[in-house]
Design a binder for these strands. Structure first.
Lengths: 150, 150
DNA sequence: GTTGACCCTCCAATGGTGGTAGGGTGTAGA
DNA sequence: TCTACACCCTACCACCATTGGAGGGTCAAC
């Protein structure tokens, strides 16, 4: 299997396949005589694992741990569960932050005429002397990575 | 006001104050004879606006638009509202993605013993032949930027 | 006049992804 | 056999927002 076929089979872009190899997330693929990467079914299975973990929002480092556990027949399911639950807590934290932003914005937008007059509570709130957020003193928003589409 | 004081007054790090200036989000601060940036109350107000917009998850480009509207006395509130609601829709999209991830993970974790036995539905699901997500065919997760904490 | 807290610019890294340039390879059809 | 075209390779650069550091200047207090 060439890298292009592997990409189709796993849903991971060719770029990312090479990148995952480069950072050591997955072992380097074998090479053909001409230097082309060659993927076995086992490779593909592993990459599909990676892709699904990405879909669940795991970061590459966490995926590395998951892969280790996956391949360790003597793992304790407690370790896997704990990793997963840690991640859930992180996702929930992000969701709470989103919730707050959405609630504030919807509140403000709801009170904005949205016509051709200039007065707008959204801008006045952003420009006001007090802090913009409603409840809960403003805290440093934990801008944890959620990946980026370049 | 020096940059350090401005940083305390706005909640924006010194680094970011310089960065926002560099990318043209805010006009360059005046300089003292020795080259130190000097911030006026007006500058501070503008920067507080920026910080609050960031807290609401707006991206720098959107903040630039918001700043323009803020300073344009003849703006139409409709334009502001539309910008805000676009942003809300984006946040809601991200929240939906988080919800799906959380639901899937909680489901899987719930069925994991979490003891010292190795069998674990989390890993088997990630490693299975089918797709990991429950409802809704897997779609490309829109990994839109949510900022990054370096 | 020295110390220490500030300020300056410039460069690099982060994480995950996309892009492109400049080249080699493999295969199908004329 | 030649050619076209789709693929592969490496090595870069860009993105976004942010932090860090190095190497050097400035200011105020003691």
């Amino acid at each position: 299997m060439n890298i292009g076929e592997a990409s189709k089979a796993t849903g991971i872009s060719v770029k990312m396949l090479r990148y995952y190899e480069e950072i050591g997330l997955v072992r380097a693929a074998l090479r053909s005589l001409s230097g082309y990467r060659v993927y076995s079914d086992k490779n593909i299975a592993m990459l599909r694992f990676v892709r699904r973990a990405r879909d669940l929002g795991f970061q590459v480092k966490q995926i590395a741990s998951l892969l280790d556990l996956w391949q360790d027949g003597s793992r304790a399911s407690a370790d896997v569960k704990s990793l997963a639950l840690d991640h859930v807590r992180e996702l929930e934290q992000r969701r709470r932050e989103l919730d707050e932003m959405i609630a504030t914005l919807e509140h403000l937008a709801h009170h904005c005429h949205g016509d051709d007059r200039p007065d707008c509570p959204i801008l006045s709130s952003l420009g006001s002397e007090e802090d913009a957020e409603p409840k809960s003193k403003r805290k440093k928003v934990s801008r944890r990575s959620f990946g980026v589409a370049g």
